[in-house]
Every structure is written in structure tokens, then in C-alpha cells.
Design a protein around this nucleic acid. Structure first.
Length: 563
RNA sequence: UGGGGCGUCGCCAAGCGGUAAGGCACAGGGUUUUGAUCCCUGCAUACCCAGGUUCGAAUCCUGGCGCCCCAGCCA
């Protein structure tokens, strides 16, 4: 794994672990990644995965994959499968340690009985609304439930009958008996169990009508798995006293330590599963793997490599500070990977015909182009040069702006890997639109520069008679503002209407290059692209992963979008 | 007006009482048949503010200010 070469960054969590190890508190480190299967994983999860699995690797410990499946209402097996695929794709392996919180339902039930017998939990008959009223507010203490001091024997009996299905949804709950006056609302007798009839749990089927809550399930699951460090995001910080309370009041084998870090926010996108699910369900994107989505499935289809995502996660670090990372960080990580590893090809996205009038009509020639400018091991490919070519419309300006280095009427330009040509005329249609360029070539410029003048521009091209058509999808940021939904706006109103441009008349010279789904290339002077699964034989479809850095475009005021 | 957190360069982020790492971004220069890559150079006398302790403070103390999270039988 390429992190080996990255400078090992440390963080406050690793420091805690090192201290715990130094104090001899643990013989071995155990972490876990605990997703709820109610959606696909996104890059924010990648931060947690890289942290948890990375720690396990670096301290010769283990990291479990555990599905936190306590709310069957929102969960389903599609997500269970997709999450496993994404974690594996990211480059991590949980070996045999695949667990479900639902594996522990029976034990969890037993521990609940233990709490009841100790007088630390009771069956409450208040309904949801009453519980809310009794809870009090941020500034006022709550009131105790009238059922709070019910004898343990009575609670035990009621709890057994809840499990047996004698009561309807919501009628009864099992609550921890802690402190209704606590300034921490999580400690005001939190609900431990609720009744849910009629849902078929993806793992346990119809076995249960009683489901434990996260706050009760998580600490016990951690303890049963021997987790030493339970890493989660900041919003669970106020739950830690409850986590510790559960561990302290139940006969579990060990005492895991919860440590919180801040979640990742990325500019120009959203990261909550609720919002991402909404984009998918409302058809605002094509699915969880839409290349504009920050989901791992989306990034993968967009062309991101797992190594780049891992490198990104290492670079952003782990702290407790609120953050909103610039897209440029993510983009630089993928460019760094692809610059080194993607073979280059020439593809014309917006074709403009160029006729080399000085070149014979019937003598196409195979020129050789290296697949990588610095890495000879990537070999070279033949590129067919002929009298009729296509260049990109953006590479010609009849009346050039200041500083323009490409082709102009009367000017010269280097055709990459081929000859220098001069534009001697333009051909227009009835509407006055330029439909072709008339050029002459300098036959003495193959592999060398003319001695008497310097030609500064270099453009890419493709033979009009030897190239194949392709579809190219240009993606831009999904939202048009850095923080979608800020200020109480509906985040959907911030969607970028120009996040996708589909170009259907692009041309590429296949040469000997294999164009198979998943293959990544640099289209010279354009950006990095990946072959999409929508490709058909003879009709490849490419997704633009990211553009090349474009200092000229930046100077001339264009955005990252080039279409 | 309760509780829990957080505040170091435009964005991430080191730093843990000894005189402000690094990455991204940006600016300038060099190489270049990708306006890419690569290579140099520059980029916080300053760490939310104000006091205090100390020979010495981003780091310790006190008091402010700002931002985030919490009143699901979601996680």
C-alpha cells in the first residue's frame, strides 16, 4: 500500500493509543468501523476507515467491520453488500471479523435484564410525546417517569412480554434509570429498547419485535469484540458519559475507550447520508454511483483511485476542529496519482477539421508517440497522421487574444508528436461559421524544431479518417456554492445546473491502446479520464475525472469547466 | 439563561514553556513537442481578544468574544 511511502503523520488519537500502549493498558489494539447499512459510504466514511484500519495496521492490531443494524426500518441488504465492496475497494480487509450488532441481540437482551435486576433500568409506559415532555429542556430539568420506581420483578416481567409481542409499537420502552436532572440530556433516563412490529430485519428476519437503541448497543458491541479504542465523530461526545455508564453497569469483559474526532466537510458538496439519499431518491443524480456524488461508488466511477483517496485522507489529518476542506486538496491527490500512472492519448473533444494541403491524400503514416513523457517503461503507441485531421475548436482563434499560443490564421503551431503546420485559410459554411482550416506542413519538423524560428504552441489532434467516435462526459462540481444549504436554504436550490456536459462527437485514435471499462488515461492537454461501464463495442464512453491544472485558463478567467 | 466541544497563513494542519513544520492554494523564475509534469524562490515578527505568571508563553492562569453539537422510541 502506498501509504508506506507517505510521511507518517500522527494525530491526537494515535498519541492516546501510544500512551495507552506505553502504560501497558492493552496488549493489542483493536478498532472497528461501524457503519449503519442505511446508505452508501462516502468520502467522509473514508476518513474514518483510513483512520481505523490504518491504526490497526500500524500498531499490529485488528480492525473489525461491524454493521450497526439496530434500526431495521432504514436498513437493507443492498447497503450491506455495497459497503463491503467499498471498504475492500479502498484497500482494507477485515479478514474473518465481519460482525453485525444484531449478532448480539440475545446477549444485549440478557444485559438489559441484568440492568433491570440491579434497579438500573425500568419499563416505562410513557409514549413518545410524553417522554419528550418529561425530558425537560436545555435549561430546565426533566421530571421522573411515574414508572421509574416500578419493582425490578415487574419490569422484568413486562420486558419479557414486550419481547413476546404482547404490546403494540411505542406502547412501552425500556429506559435506563440515571438522572432526570442531568444537564446532559442523554443521561435523562434514555430509551434502551423500543418495540417495532412488522419489519423484517435483514439479518434476523422476524425473530425480534424489540430493538435496542444505538446508545445501548454500541458500547456493549465494542466490549464484546474487545475493542480498545472506539473512534467516532464529534456529535457523539455528549453520549460518552452514557457509553461509559452502560459499560460500567453491565457485566462486559472489558472497557473500551471512546474518542471523538471531527467529521470531514468538503466544499461544493454535501456529506450527510440524509441529503445524499435524497439526491438519489428524487432523481437529482443518476444514482449512488453518479460520478458527481461524493460517495465512494461515485468517486470510483468518476475515475478516482483508492490510493488517491487514501492519500487525501492522510493529508487532511485528524483533529477536533470544525473544517471544510477545499476541493483542490482532493483534486491534487488524484492528479498526483494519475500523472504518474495514466498513459497518455490524444482525444479531440470539440472537432474542427484541419486539412493539410501539402500532405499527400493517399499516404497516411504511423507516427510514434510515447505513452508517458517520463516513464519509458510505459512504451509507445502508433498514431496515424493523414491529410485530414481534427483539432479542438478551442485551439484555433482567427483573431487571437493577447498571449494566445495556439493556432491562428497565418500562424504556426506544433501538432503534438507530429509536424509543425501553418494555417493558410479558413473554410466557412453558408452561415459564416468556420467549418475547416486549410494548412500546410513543414516536413522537416518531425522530431525536431525548425532552426530559423520558434514555434511556441503545441496542440493535440487526431486523424479524421482513422479515428473512432466516442462520448465524453465532462463533470463539474455538483453544487455551485461552497456550503450547500447554508443559511437555512434548501440545499437542492444550490445544485449546479452545469455539473454535467455530455460531448457526443469526440474522436480518438485507438492505436494499440485497449479501451476497456475502468481504464484510465490522460487526454493530453485536457485532463484525466476513465472508461465508463456505459461503453459499447466501438463506442467508448469516457468520464472526466479531473482537468489538468490550467494556468492559462485561470489567467483568462475561465472556471475549471472546459466545454 | 443548561451541558459538551472548537478557535495557529485563503484551506487543511504540526506545535504540548525555549523563541511559528508540512501539504493544498497563490505569486515569480527555470526546464519542456502537454499553457501539464518537474525544479527553484516567495508566502503568519505571528498563533480569536484582553490581562496575568515567567528570564522566556501559541503553549500555563484569569476574564471576555466567536463558531459547532445536544431537547429521535435515528445513528
Amino acid at each position: 500500500m502506498s501509504e508506506q511511502t507517505d510521511s507518517k503523520k500522527t494525530n491526537f488519537i494515535r498519541r492516546v493509543i501510544e500512551e495507552d500502549l506505553a502504560q501497558g493498558r492493552h496488549a493489542r489494539i483493536a478498532t472497528r468501523f461501524p457503519p449503519e447499512p442505511n446508505g452508501y459510504l462516502h468520502i467522509g466514511h473514508a476518513k474514518s476507515i483510513v483512520l481505523n484500519f490504518g491504526i490497526a495496521r500500524d500498531y499490529q492490531g485488528t480492525c473489525n467491520l461491524r454493521f450497526d443494524d439496530t434500526n431495521p426500518h432504514k436498513e437493507n441488504p443492498e447497503y450491506v453488500a455495497a459497503i463491503q465492496e467499498d471498504v475492500r475497494w479502498l484497500g482494507y480487509d477485515w479478514d474473518e471479523r465481519l460482525y453485525f450488532a444484531s449478532d448480539y441481540f440475545e446477549q444485549l437482551y440478557g444485559f438489559a435484564v441484568e440492568l433491570i435486576e440491579k434497579g438500573r433500568a425500568y419499563v416505562c409506559e410513557l409514549d413518545a410525546e410524553q417522554i419528550r415532555e418529561y425530558r425537560g429542556t436545555l435549561t430546565e430539568p426533566g421530571r421522573e417517569s411515574p414508572h421509574r420506581d416500578r419493582p425490578p420483578a415487574e419490569s422484568r416481567d413486562l420486558f419479557a412480554r414486550m419481547r413476546a409481542g404482547e404490546f403494540p409499537d411505542g406502547a412501552l420502552t425500556l429506559r435506563a434509570k440515571i438522572d432526570m436532572a442531568s444537564p446532559n440530556l442523554n443521561l435523562r433516563d434514555p430509551v434502551l429498547y423500543r418495540i417495532r412490529h412488522g419489519v423484517i430485519h435483514h439479518q434476523t428476519g422476524r425473530e425480534w419485535c424489540l430493538y435496542p437503541t444505538y446508545d445501548y448497543t454500541h458500547p456493549i458491541s465494542d466490549a464484546l469484540e474487545g475493542i480498545t479504542h472506539s473512534l467516532c465523530t464529534l456529535e457523539f461526545e455528549d453520549h460518552r458519559p452514557l457509553y461509559d455508564w452502560v459499560i460500567a453497569n453491565v457485566s462486559v469483559p472489558c472497557k473500551p475507550r471512546q474518542i471523538e474526532f471531527s467529521r470531514l466537510n468538503l466544499e461544493y458538496t454535501v456529506m450527510s447520508k440524509r441529503r445524499l439519499t435524497q439526491l438519489v431518491d428524487e432523481g437529482l443524480v443518476a444514482g449512488w454511483d453518479d460520478p458527481r456524488m461524493p460517495s465512494l461508488a461515485g468517486l470510483r466511477r468518476r475515475g478516482y483511485t483508492s490510493a488517491a483517496i487514501r492519500a487525501f485522507c492522510e493529508r487532511i489529518g485528524v483533529t477536533k476542529a470544525d473544517n471544510r476542506v477545499e476541493m483542490a486538496m482532493l483534486e491534487s491527490a488524484i492528479r498526483e496519482d494519475l500523472d504518474r500512472n495514466a498513459p497518455r492519448i490524444m482525444v479531440v473533444l470539440r472537432p474542427l477539421k484541419l486539412v493539410v494541403e501539402s500532405y499527400p491524400e493517399d499516404r497516411p503514416e504511423a507516427l510514434i508517440a510515447p505513452n508517458h513523457p517520463k516513464d519509458e517503461t510505459m512504451k509507445a503507441r502508433p498514431v496515424t497522421f493523414s491529410r485530414e485531421l481534427y483539432i479542438d475548436r478551442n485551439d484555433f482563434m482567427e483573431e487571437p487574444v493577447k498571449g494566445f499560443k495556439r493556432l491562428t490564421l497565418g500562424g504556426e503551431v506544433r501538432l503534438r508528436h507530429a509536424y509543425v503546420v501553418r494555417c493558410v485559410g479558413v473554410v466557412r459554411d453558408a452561415a459564416g461559421e468556420i467549418i475547416a482550416l486549410r494548412c500546410t506542413h513543414d516536413p522537416d519538423t518531425l522530431g525536431k524544431n525548425p532552426a530559423d524560428r520558434k514555434v511556441k504552441g503545441v496542440i493535440h489532434w487526431v486523424s479524421a479518417t482513422h479515428s473512432v467516435a466516442a462520448e465524453v462526459r465532462l463533470y463539474d462540481r455538483l453544487f455551485s456554492v461552497p456550503e450547500p444549504g447554508a443559511g437555512g436554504r434548501d440545499f437542492r436550490a444550490d445544485l449546479n445546473p452545469d455539473s454535467l456536459h455530455t460531448l457526443t462527437h469526440c474522436f480518438l485514435d485507438p492505436g494499440l491502446t485497449e479501451i476497456a471499462p475502468g481504464n484510465r488515461f490522460q487526454f493530453e492537454r485536457e485532463g484525466y479520464f476513465i472508461v465508463d461501464p456505459d461503453s459499447r463495442p466501438g463506442r467508448p464512453v469516457f468520464n472526466r475525472t479531473v482537468t489538468l491544472r490550467d494556468t492559462w485558463g485561470r489567467k483568462t478567467g475561465r472556471t475549471t469547466e472546459r466545454s
